[in-house]
Design a protein around this nucleic acid. Structure first.
Length: 426
DNA sequence: TCTGGGGTCCTAGGACCC
DNA sequence: TCTGGGGTCCTAGGACCC
């Protein structure tokens, strides 16, 4: 047991709600919810809000009464703040192990093998340091596989007597089985609602049922991923830590609009903005794309009107990476799919087939005057430089207009850590 | 009636995660 | 009135190749 690899999962408690509290300490002890883009759904809740029965993912308008009655504090999401807080937290976690995977904005796995420390006090020190340096509370789950570390984290969060740290390997076998019996199979990491339904149909309801089932049946029903989860419950590590994030496969940029859009120019305005965001990401990763998908669709929740989903994918013979190439192309594709008379609720684009090698020229293209090519490159570098220094001061004209697409964000807090004009004032 | 075998690549759809 | 956004991987089926 003791010389097996050990993993720890560090998970921030109610991350977005906790970020809001750091800069508004009077919210401590009060119920808080954070809304998705466009103030649509609940995407984070403080413990107090959870206790009121506010569900994850609930549409905001459906819980407005409950929220008002209980004086729940409402915040629009503030990703610049959360992203910056996340990188601070992750950096501190990284000081506690040479092997770290940043799994999501609020979770990180680390490997604990061969660390010359008492594990418990080492992790206790991590928790305290993250809390005192950033204000964010975290819990630590420890186990010999990632699935077990995830499970352990649940326990650490749920029972305060563990002081935020739980090592599942410390459980004797019978207690481990008891624990599995208390957890629904759909709550295991990697078993989602669809798989849970399939398993329920053959009498597998708890994680313990799953643990005791035949591995062949699990593989037939859930495929290789289900089998991995199964084996990880037995302590056989199948899902390795990924220290280096794999290269991106695609970049998606999409939004539901602040108001439904009918007009082509309005849609194009929104799409230009989204394209610029996607291209910035592309450039930051030093990638180029050869496949662009553009899509727009009407509100699927409105039953009185037909749901219309329009999209088109275009492939190119050579990879492109420049705003001046991609923005006009997106506008062209939008022109091809656009149909008047519908109220579009959401739209976006996907850049796919990403490649590092964007110098490759098209064999059949003509007029590749090297002077012109180098001028183009110089131009786009200049624009990028100016925009970096003077925040988004050069834009495509197609992005300017009536801004009806801008998402609602009625309850947004300040970008305390990333914007000079929104610093905390004491 | 009987109709090879082995492989790749691409796409769409489904499932999962946060 | 009001329902998020951004990812990954797997699988099945079709097209195509020799």
């Amino acid at each position: 047991m003791s010389n097996r690899t050990k993993f720890a999962l560090i998970d921030c408690n109610n991350f977005y709600a906790s970020c809001e509290r750091v800069f508004e300490p009077k919210l401590e002890g009060k119920p808080i919810v954070v809304l998705s883009n466009n103030d649509g759904c609940i995407i984070a809740r403080s413990n107090e809000a959870k206790a009121l029965g506010i569900k994850m993912g609930a549409p905001f308008f459906k819980v407005k009464n409950l929220v008002a009655k209980n004086n729940v504090v409402v915040k629009s999401s503030n990703y610049p703040l959360y992203g910056d807080m996340s990188s601070r937290v992750m950096k501190i976690i990284g000081e506690y192990s040479p092997v770290q995977e940043i799994y999501s904005i609020d979770e990180s796995f680390i490997e604990l093998e061969r660390l010359p420390f008492n594990l418990m006090s080492h992790m206790q020190s991590l928790r305290q340091r993250v809390k005192s340096w950033t204000g964010i509370p975290v819990c630590v789950g420890i186990g010999s596989t990632k699935v077990l570390a995830k499970l352990a984290n649940r326990i650490a969060k749920k029972y305060s007597r563990f002081n935020g740290i739980f090592d599942i390997d410390d459980l004797p076998y019978d207690r481990y089985c008891k624990l599995l019996q208390s957890i629904e199979v759909g709550d295991l990491w990697g078993v989602g609602s669809q798989s849970a339904k399939k398993l329920n149909r053959i009498g597998i309801h708890t994680s313990y049922d799953f643990y005791k089932a035949d591995v062949g049946i699990i593989e037939t029903l859930l495929g290789v991923n289900g089998k991995k989860v199964y084996q990880e419950l037995y302590g056989n590590s199948c899902i390795p830590i990924e220290v280096i994030p794999p290269t991106r496969q695609q970049i998606v940029s999409s939004r539901s609009f602040g108001s439904d859009l009918k007009d082509f120019d309005e849609l194009n305005q929104a799409l230009t903005n989204l394209t610029r965001k996607a291209v910035n990401k592309l450039n930051n990763h030093k990638l180029a794309t050869t496949t662009i998908t553009v899509f727009i669709y009407t509100n699927p929740h409105k039953k009185d009107k037909p749901y219309v989903h329009l999209s088109k994918t275009v492939g190119m013979t050579s990879a492109i990476q420049d705003e001046s190439q991609i923005i006009p192309l997106v506008a062209q594709i939008l022109r091809l799919i656009y149909k008047p008379g519908h109220s579009f609720y959401k739209g976006g684009l996907v850049l796919a087939n990403l490649t590092k090698d964007y110098q490759q020229q098209d064999l059949f293209s003509v007029n590749q005057n090297p002077k012109i090519e180098s001028f183009k490159l110089q131009k786009s570098n200049t624009i990028r430089g100016v925009n970096k220094k003077f925040k988004e001061s050069i834009k495509y004209a197609s992005e300017l207009g009536n801004n009806r697409w801008l998402p609602r964000a009625e309850f947004r807090s300040n970008r305390y850590t990333t914007n000079w004009s929104e610093l905390l004032i004491i």
